[in-house]
Design a protein around this nucleic acid. Structure first.
Lengths: 215, 215
DNA sequence: ATAGTTGAGTGGTCAGACCAATTTTTAGCG
DNA sequence: CGCTAAAAATTGGTCTGACCACTCAACTAT
């Protein structure tokens, strides 16, 4: 009875029965790395992808829509699909509406974010120049920024001097999640102290300053 | 009822010309909050949603797939779609996979992983009991483990005492990625020293021990 | 009462058809 | 030859309808 059996070409085992759109996701990732695409570059069209990956256009679209919602790609009707600079703020609103208030997750995010900020500051401390300090000060003095924006901009400057993109991305993501929840600590004095420490190059005090936040 | 005019029922303004799947996303969110659904609860079927939201099943699926990729829902063929406990870990993993295309992220991974291991150790240090120390020792003495496995098992014990799932998840992810690249540092003496430090409760030395690795 | 069958419901995937916006090509004119 | 305007091709956006594979509950025959 032949059992036609046409499903995905490669379900090497039963255990890896991934869905079509997940495989498409993986293939797109491979394609990006193989061709060394970066933000702004164009991806093949949906029809082309479907053809090359041996999947239907619907499946390809499911993968692309998911990527779009995550903010990794941008699609322009009539033009195509493009890689995007990852900017988190977009997805948050939607996400937070779905997220149930799990206090454990909240605590993890705050703690981990705090650690990453501390380490980033330690790394960046030797790289910050006088103009960077000026930039940090002007962020503090800019009264048009609310607390969240101030924090984000402040540490954005710092992360840019860590030369560690991965850490910055992880941080941005957590910043994103914590955007909707009331942050703890981080009063204005914290930033002032931090700038002072950076100015006088007392790197050992960074640890101490951040430690105070956790309590 | 007029019935003609079939485009999206509500494009409140021209400026908010959202796509169908985005509106579906919003409608699903409303549905969830209106019916006070929480994790484990079942969503209407795809066909039902398509019908109620006046959209095609394709559009509904694009929205659902995006939610699934975000880790907000879970689908079981033959059963239905269910709300899931939200875990940011999933998203972190997903994003990282796309971020790691950059060739010089290798360095970033090693550095970041190192930082996380250090901080996790500091956090866990006060939680580790005598039996845990015994476990760590036995991992070191198990000659059936290769370097990678030893490292993984060793820190897995430590991360289990941090009570920070997010951090552990991030670490595991980076472990995965670094699996194919030759690791630096981490000779056997490192673990021995670390155990000694933990035994004698010299938490200040943790920082120093890890610092040596980076050079 | 039990075991086996059947059928309805659900997600997974696909093919094909239009529409709408944009780009590229072509045709036409000066 | 050069420019502009129309036509064609390309691309994303949406919808319809069709199967398949899987799950579960109702039904049936033993």
């Amino acid at each position: 009875m032949t059992a036609t059996h046409k499903g995905r070409s490669l379900d090497r085992q039963m255990n890896t029965k991934s869905k079509a759109y997940e495989e498409v996701l993986g293939e797109i990732r491979k394609f990006i790395s193989k061709n060394e695409l970066s933000s702004g570059d164009k991806l093949p069209s949906e029809r082309e992808l479907a053809d090359q990956l041996n999947a239907s256009r619907s499946s390809v679209r499911e993968a692309l829509r998911a990527l779009e919602l995550l903010g990794l790609i941008e699609t322009r009707r009539g033009e195509g699909t493009f890689l995007k600079v990852y900017r988190p703020y977009h997805t948050v609103g939607l996400l937070s509406a779905f997220i149930l208030q799990d206090p454990n997750v909240k605590k993890d995010i705050i703690l981990t974010k705090n650690i990453i900020e501390k380490e980033a500051t330690k790394i960046a401390s030797s790289q910050l120049k006088q103009e960077d300090m000026q930039k940090l000060l002007s962020i503090l003095e800019n009264n048009e920024l609310d607390e969240k924006q101030r924090h984000y901009n402040f540490f954005m400057v710092i992360f840019q001097h860590t030369e560690n993109n991965l850490m910055q991305r992880i941080w941005q993501l957590m910043e994103d999640f914590s955007y909707t929840m009331e942050e703890i600590g981080y009063n204005k004095q914290f930033y002032i102290d931090l700038i002072e420490i950076l100015n006088t190059n007392q790197q050992e005090s960074i640890e101490y300053l951040f430690e105070k936040l956790s309590r």
